[in-house]
Design a binder for these strands. Structure first.
Lengths: 323, 323
DNA sequence: GTCATTATTTTGTCCTAGACAAAAAATAAA
DNA sequence: TTTATTTTTTGTCTAGGACAAAATAATGAC
């Protein structure tokens, strides 16, 4: 019994693999083929779709642009050059900030120099300012650069990994479990894989003296509730990127609120909650980190304040975690 | 325009949500319904499936048992008690090891005591022994306990998160980029979300003096190759849990090997590679951490040694990362 | 008894093509 | 400009059929 050689020649992808790599669901791929006549893959002897690596890279590009708000129907007819041009156009001129030079390390391919550079910035600024003035804008800038095609998935992964490493280590340094209050349970919702925003929140809260119980990403709602109750947490914090559909996020948040005892506060934040019109009275929504530290200082969580309508802005998502 | 209330009452799940929560694909859920008459969900006015939370929890349990090797056809007819009994049966008596008491903290619900306990063990044993004698067996034990229903997703997430925190911080401590050799690029393959095994490897290699370039999980193969070449890595390391199908893993590994320049070694390890009969001459497979440090000491990677057939053992997977 | 080979069952993934609501864009009215 | 209403666009859901890969059972050789 020899090894499966089917996709050996490194050129062909099944529909499942394309789904995996691009994040576009099978159903969607099939319906695009029907409607827009793209992508039209080859078929194997069993009539199953076989995509080429060129189709894959084009789909990746299209997905990027879709995530930034363009409709697929207007993208599939364009050729590669037009797509790239469009990507450029979507990038807004980035402002300068303490660590703006760091981005060049990524685009320039000097991956190994990233870590010491970040460490220096952290030391100079302290954790709090590092988070607000370096990590947050860098996240944004990295997302932008990725759209513009200036950054590969590789560079972005490496960046994420470095940030994760630094923040995790800082978390550990500042962590306390000496009965400090309030105790906060943090996680993301089922289906939400982005964890950097969560880490930033965790660091911020930890600095403010809270005791963090972090569950990482993708915890089922029932388990979040159980954890919060069993461990007597005063607050449950949920971070939402733009990865999930907005209505999914909204309905999950409402569901979570209804499952949670009233005396436990529910806080939600992250770029996935921009433009959410109104959720519910007793769900508190944050649009940036400083709001969180402020809110924590009202420790007592006296009389849950009404939900806060966040300042809306024209949608320009980038599928990356701004916070 | 009010908020979507469709799934408000916290009892109903769409097929997409069930897929999300259980990891069982839509197609599979539908075919089970057709074949086994389970799960048969209610339908909404549009004939769409609506699952109850009881069906969800039963599906979760079934998924657990399937992951440990039982066929679904033999599970769907059983009731809750029988399922739990079966789960018990699958648990093998766990051996005792330095940190075995730690498990009780999780089952006992004292989540907050876990971190200091682990820190003490780390200090006492040192990183190397901590990895081999505590983390590895604990991973196993946690997986077992989860099957047996003694541990919730909550506890398991918290455990994972704590281990991740400690190992990440240690990684940062031991990291060097003073031109130390060899340079190793680490990642998991597309679709493989488990990162703890990767971290363990990273720590091990870092201790041995390698320079680590970690990309985290789920990097496309093309990007892995690009990263390895651009950064002049001598070795590419890939960690595989049992999450992906074996044939997927195999074909991806072979594809990666063919894309990679010959002078870059490809190392693969993790529980997902147990029972892999034979891959290819120039892919090196590891079944535990100590093999890795040994291999690294043959630094020169002289004449790629032939692939190593690993000692096979009866399949008993648990979908958790043993390494 | 164990091991290797072959036959049979089980199971997941893929297929087509139609339907429809939620979201976005375009239009009309204030 | 903003606000309400229509139209277009888009993703997800449905049904039931097909088929190979994986797992199990059966067979034969030693």
């Amino acid at each position: 019994m020899t090894l499966t050689q089917n996709s050996q020649n490194s050129q062909n992808y099944s529909i499942a693999e394309i789904e995996q790599e691009t994040g576009i669901k099978r159903d969607t791929l099939r319906v695009w083929e029907r409607r827009y006549n793209f992508p039209v893959p080859l078929r194997n002897e069993r009539r199953e779709r076989i995509y080429s690596s060129e189709q894959l890279s084009r789909l990746r590009l299209i997905k990027q642009l879709m995530d930034s708000g363009t409709q697929p129907g207007k993208l599939v007819t364009l050729d590669k050059r037009e797509l790239h041009a469009l990507a450029e156009q979507h990038v807004c001129r980035s402002v300068s900030f303490p660590g703006s030079g760091v981005l060049d390390l990524l685009t320039g391919g000097s991956l190994c120099e990233l870590q010491p550079r970040l460490e220096i910035l952290l030391k100079e600024l302290g954790l709090h300012d590092f988070l607000s003035n370096v990590v947050a804008p860098l996240n944004h800038a990295v997302g932008e650069a990725w759209f513009a095609g200036k950054l590969g998935i590789l560079d972005e992964h490496h960046y994420t990994e470095q940030i994760r490493m630094i923040l995790t280590a800082e978390m550990r340094r500042t962590a306390r479990n000496d009965g400090a209050r309030p105790r906060v349970l943090l996680s993301t919702m089922p289906g939400e894989p982005h964890g950097i925003g969560l880490l930033m929140v965790a660091c911020t809260l930890s600095l403010e003296g809270a005791e963090i119980l972090s569950l990482g990403v993708q915890t089922p709602l029932e388990e979040i509730v159980r954890g919060a109750v069993e461990n007597k947490c005063a607050i449950v914090g949920v971070s939402c990127s733009e990865y999930l559909r907005r209505r999914t996020v909204a309905s999950q948040l409402v569901r979570l609120r209804s499952m949670l005892p009233e005396n436990i506060a529910l806080w939600a934040g992250g770029s996935g909650l921009r433009n959410i019109t109104l959720l519910q009275e007793n769900i508190r929504i944050f649009s940036d980190l400083s709001q969180i530290s402020a809110a924590l200082q009202d420790q007592q969580i006296r009389s849950l304040t009404g939900s806060k309508r966040i300042n809306s802005s024209k949608k320009r998502s980038n599928n990356h975690e701004l916070f």
